[in-house]
């Protein structure tokens, strides 16, 4: 089991997010996060899906996504150099005694302080998932009053591929390279 990041380009039509969510629910695919938003192309939305699964599991998700008529293309960018970002807003309890300390920590993690009052402040931080998790760990002793994370968005590095012309790749099938005993999850359906 490892983190897999899938990017799905879907038609921007009513109900498409529902179809994708329904697929994950129905097939009992466990996802860590799913984000969706517009792209540079009119009529095309882009979803970033993060899940904990093995290669065969990722291929199953991919091929099931392709079965949805509104899904244009699915890329597994797990192994590809990519920029991966999560954004969090964290409201931390502060008082006159520790505010400076918290602000210094914000600086260390290159978080932006976007709201301050006498008992709390809100930090905005972007980065890879584990960086944000680390910030949370460090801030927890002060008291996290409220937190929200957007979930991961990702984009592959370099200029070789754009979503301009989705090459319609048939779902790749992992076969020989699979250790039969490795994944009981799939075997014991």
């Amino acid at each position: 089991m490892a983190k897999h990041i899938l990017v799905a380009y879907v038609e921007d039509k009513p109900g498409v997010l529902n179809r994708v969510a329904s697929l994950f629910r129905r097939r009992a695919f466990n996802i860590d996060s799913l984000t969706v938003g517009r792209t540079e192309k009119v009529g095309v939305s882009r979803m970033t899906i993060v899940m904990d699964t093995d290669d065969v599991g990722a291929r199953r998700v991919e091929s099931n996504l392709y079965k949805l008529v509104n899904v244009l293309r699915v890329d597994d960018i797990t192994e590809i150099p990519a920029v991966v970002r999560d954004l969090a807003l964290i409201k931390v309890a502060v008082n006159s005694g520790n505010r400076t300390e918290v602000l210094q920590l914000a600086d260390v993690f290159r978080a932006r302080v976007v709201d301050v009052d006498d008992r709390s402040l809100i930090m905005e931080i972007t980065g890879a998932e584990d960086k944000i998790t680390k910030v949370c760990d460090v801030l927890r002793p002060f008291g996290i009053l409220s937190m929200v994370r957007t979930g991961v968005v990702a984009m592959r590095r370099g200029s070789d591929v754009t979503s301009e012309e989705p090459p319609l790749v048939p779902a790749r099938i992992v076969t020989s390279a699979v250790d039969q005993s490795a994944s009981d999850a799939v075997m014991s359906v």
Binding site: V56, R60, S63, N64, Y66, T175, V189
Partner: peptide, 9 residues
């Protein structure tokens, strides 16, 4: 393709 490796490898 989604039937491949679903139940039997």
């Amino acid at each position: 393709p989604s039937e491949v490796n679903k139940n039997v490898r």
